[in-house]
Simulated scan of single mutants.
Amino acid sequence: MLIVVTRTLILYALVVIALRLMGKREIGQLQPFDLVGIIMISELAAIPAENVGIPLIAGIIPIIVILFASTLLAVLELKSERARALLNGTPSVLIARGKIVEAELKRNRYNLTDLLVELRIKNVPNISDVEFAVLETNGQLSILPKSLKRPATPEDFGIAPSYEGLPSVLVMDGKLQKNNFERDKIDLPWFLNELKKQNIHRIEDVFLASLDTCGTLFIQKKLKR
């Protein structure tokens, strides 16, 4: 039993490292060669993990080979536009100026039901409101509404809103994020005083505290257990 556990942990660690080296793309953003690599790696890791009669190296070497091949293809994809088109395909325009391109639907085996579902998900239920709908190489549908149907922006009204960046997390689950205090030059005594104003006397009692670029402090206290 101990041998099985040890082999499984080794293969698990190897698969995690392999997937980490392959990049941070989500499943929905994977290109075909990425997806094939992940499926093969998982299958190759499962075989020696289940059968102790198979040498562990018989699972490790193929995983390393696939990782090497996937990395090589990724580099090739970055260097060559032709290789990128060959490996990943090219985007397809499914809707052009409010009209469905039937030939592209058939070529990509993309049915009308799926198209209408994707439009509803993107809050564009009417095909006539779509300027272009592009099926990307990762299978996602990009939708560009017609100019009159796009949400208004501050620029449309000649408004220049103030800068809005990412909030700085000061406390997370009762732990002070010292690096963020130093990076954003936030005064710790000021923060502790703000906690006292909300009747919080210990950092450990804070579930989450963050400060946005406008100076607004958000504090949520932990629930009592």
Rank of each mutant, 00 (worst) to 15 (best):
E81T: 09
I100R: 01
G98W: 08
T113E: 14
D187S: 14
M172F: 14
E136T: 02
I61F: 15
N88L: 07
D173W: 12
I64S: 00
F132N: 06
E77L: 09
Q140H: 13
L119Q: 11
K149P: 00
V75T: 11
V124E: 04
R107N: 04
T113W: 08
E136C: 07
R109W: 13
Q177T: 03
P167Y: 03
K106N: 06
E182S: 13
L148G: 01
L94Q: 06
V101I: 15
P189N: 10
L73K: 11
E136P: 00
R150S: 04
E155L: 14
A152R: 10
V130R: 03
I100T: 04
R84F: 09
F132G: 01
Q140C: 05
T113R: 02
A152K: 12
T113F: 04
E182W: 09
N179F: 05
I61R: 11
I66T: 08
P91T: 02
E104I: 03
L135R: 09
G139W: 15
E118S: 09
P189Y: 15
S162N: 03
L87M: 11
K185R: 15
V65W: 11
D184H: 15
A83E: 03
K185G: 00
T90D: 01
G98Q: 05
K99G: 01
P125V: 12
P151M: 12
S128F: 10
S128A: 13
L176G: 03
A103Q: 05
V117P: 00
P145K: 06
V65S: 09
I186K: 11
I121K: 08
T113D: 14
K175S: 06
K99V: 10
T71E: 08
P91L: 04
A74T: 15
D173V: 06
A85D: 01
P151V: 13
K146W: 02
A152L: 14
N126T: 04
G139K: 04
S70I: 15
N138V: 07
V117F: 13
A133V: 08
V134S: 03
T153K: 15
D129I: 14
P62I: 10
A83Y: 11
E182V: 13
L166V: 12
P154C: 05
E182Y: 10
S80I: 11
P62C: 06
L116M: 12
A96G: 01
P91R: 09
E155V: 11
L76M: 15
I64T: 05
G89Y: 04
T153G: 01
G165S: 05
L144I: 15
L148V: 07
F181I: 08
D156E: 13
R109L: 14
A85L: 07
I63F: 14
D187G: 01
L105I: 13
V117T: 14
S92Y: 04
P189L: 07
M172V: 05
A133Y: 08
F157Q: 06
L188P: 00
Q177V: 15
V75N: 05
L78T: 10
V117K: 10
L86M: 13
P145G: 02
K149M: 14
A74C: 06
S162Q: 08
D187M: 11
Q140W: 08
L73N: 10
K149I: 04
Y110H: 06
G89M: 05
A160H: 11
F132R: 10
L72R: 11
I143W: 09
Y110K: 06
N108G: 00
V101H: 07
